[in-house]
Design a protein around this nucleic acid. Structure first.
Lengths: 213, 213
DNA sequence: CTCGCCTTTGACCAAAAGGTCAAAAGGAAT
DNA sequence: ATTCCTTTTGACCTTTTGGTCAAAGGCGAG
């Protein structure tokens, strides 16, 4: 339960406490679990500290409050989360670009379900801490990529449909396998430990049929 | 803040406190908000009581604990939630039956978003209180309807794809508009107050293209 | 070694929250 | 009106929890 030895990074300037722009912060990547499993109010600072191998006061030495910890995790997450969409290129094959995006998101659900749930929890609760980001950064990115897709459709390279809702559908379909994981397993029952291969096949068919002109 | 007058139902036998099989319980339907907005641990008994126009001790007179309140809401919800799937009939037109199911679920997202979020919250957190139901009642129903769909596909009346994942996709796509409501609005931006007409059109196209043989 | 600075923690605090209880308030039958 | 039963509530208790603090523990520079 207790850590041994110093956890300071080897070669990184650091100072804190009265410093608003801290340069070193403990890596909380492994601690998404608390918030993702119980939501913001459901997880306790003690718990998070334990997961991070820190004492509670020590954790609060690096972050001014529980809120700040949550926000930190969330914003760290956002970049990772948007990367696959950012990677959609105009000069690829349209269907391929979209299927690749879908597959990347599905992999993220499979490999980082807790992060997905952390995000889902925040949105479910009205996104109080990241609404700004959604309305600016996310909206801009989606608008851009939706424009790209609309272009492909206008050129007849994809069958026409609503690009924004297309993106929503990729999000919901892929994240479902992380966020509703328990339900998926309960319904599929024993003997279907890994639903992802079937999910990928299904989703590939789905989007191929939707988008093939 | 305070209620006036008696809240007893006019003509219903009732007794409680030491009675395990209470016949009267206050209607908490309007109180899904608390749990749906903040999750189980995020909402307080005081809050729920206030929403139900009861004092806290009075609420705890009808329900033995916060857990029991949550469970009550959840099980009340489950039936409503499954009704549309139950309504899928073998003797209809296959595509029509599925599109109708999808539309009903979408209407539920539009008209009862808080209930959808309450359910989503529970699943996100590992469904500790309803896992049983998922593994029995829900699984059985889904297996039955998946069989029905598989039959339609075998008969060539629908294009083949995985029936279980088809059902998952209907759930995720429709519930997305309730659960991730804030995100949908943030991304669509002002001037798109009501995303549902476009969502319905998009989803109709999606499933029509997937399933038309 | 010692000084000064950053880091870590045990002990503590105040507020919030789940739950209890005894007493008060209705209401119907007699 | 009295009695009996159910319903309602203010006050209270205990536990949990976010957050503080003063003191102790490194660690490098001189």
């Amino acid at each position: 339960m207790k850590r041994l030895g110093s956890r300071r990074p080897d070669d990184q300037a650091r100072r804190a406490h009265a410093d608003p722009a801290q340069e070193y912060r403990p890596d909380l990547r492994g601690c998404a679990f608390g918030f993702s499993a119980h939501g913001f109010r459901g997880s306790t600072v003690d718990q998070i500290a334990r997961e991070a191998n820190l004492s509670k006061p020590n954790l609060l030495y690096y972050f001014p409050s529980k809120e700040a910890i949550h926000q930190h995790l969330l914003s760290m997450l956002m970049d990772t989360w948007l990367a696959p969409l950012r990677a959609m290129r105009e000069d690829g094959d349209p269907l391929d670009e979209i299927l690749t995006y879908m597959r990347r998101k599905l992999e993220m659900s499979r490999d980082h379900p807790r992060e997905s749930r952390l995000f889902a929890n925040e949105i479910l609760q009205g996104a109080p801490r990241i609404l700004d980001m959604l309305e600016t950064e996310l909206k801009d990115l989606v608008d851009e990529k939706a424009g790209l897709i609309a272009g492909w459709m206008a050129d007849g390279r994809l069958a026409p449909s609503d690009p924004h809702h297309l993106i929503f559908s990729i999000w919901s379909l892929t994240q479902h396998y992380a966020d509703f994981d328990v339900q998926v397993h309960a319904v599929l029952g024993a003997g279907h430990d890994n639903p992802y291969p079937a999910a990928e096949a299904y989703l590939t068919t789905l989007f191929t049929r939707l988008l093939t002109p």
